[in-house]
């Protein structure tokens, strides 16, 4: 599978897919997309990168174990729920703030944080499974 063309193109495809996955994640609240589908796109991107350039390269590129990404995601999602406690509203009530960043208004919210958590869990878990299976070729 590791043809020269594939190996040359794969890093570009993978980075584009990662970028696209974040785009899909962030637009999810109003247009088709969201954390789950974004996570799947991100995982596919890394899986393709791994097929082309080897698992070790991917592991080096993402620095941490993909399962830690999933763990951080789960913590983020839980945190998004717990944030409602200090605000004195029931668990997981959505909270919204509208700060102005670089001159334009941004809508930040706990559902968005939650969606980022979903993204990380899906991407982390699927990537771990894919990389773990791909690694077989190496040993």
């Amino acid at each position: 599978m590791r043809t020269l063309i594939f190996r040359t193109v794969a890093p570009y495809i993978a980075s584009l897919m990662l970028l696209f996955s974040i785009f899909v994640l962030l637009r999810g609240h109003n247009d088709p997309g969201g954390g789950f589908i974004g996570g799947l796109i991100g995982a596919s991107g890394l899986a393709i990168y791994g097929l082309a350039c080897g698992v070790a390269t991917v592991r080096r590129a993402i620095r941490v174990h993909p399962m830690s990404i999933a763990g951080i995601g789960l913590i983020l999602a839980a945190l998004a729920g717990i944030l409602s406690l200090p605000a004195g509203v029931p668990f997981m009530t959505g909270l919204w703030v509208y700060p102005t960043i670089l001159g334009s208004e941004a809508a930040l919210s706990t559902p968005m944080l939650f969606d980022i958590g979903v993204y990380c869990v899906v991407m982390g878990a699927i990537t771990s499974i894919a990389l773990c299976l791909e690694e077989y070729d190496g040993d």
Partner: peptide
């Protein structure tokens, strides 16, 4: 505050279910 009903259900109206589901995804992984 979301136009995408599917996504709003997943992350907000039924957020607790999703929290359980992603925990399952992680455990399965």
């Amino acid at each position: 505050h979301g136009r995408n009903v599917v996504n709003v259900i997943i992350v907000d109206f039924r957020g607790l279910d999703t929290l359980g589901e992603i925990a399952v995804v992680m455990i399965t992984g």
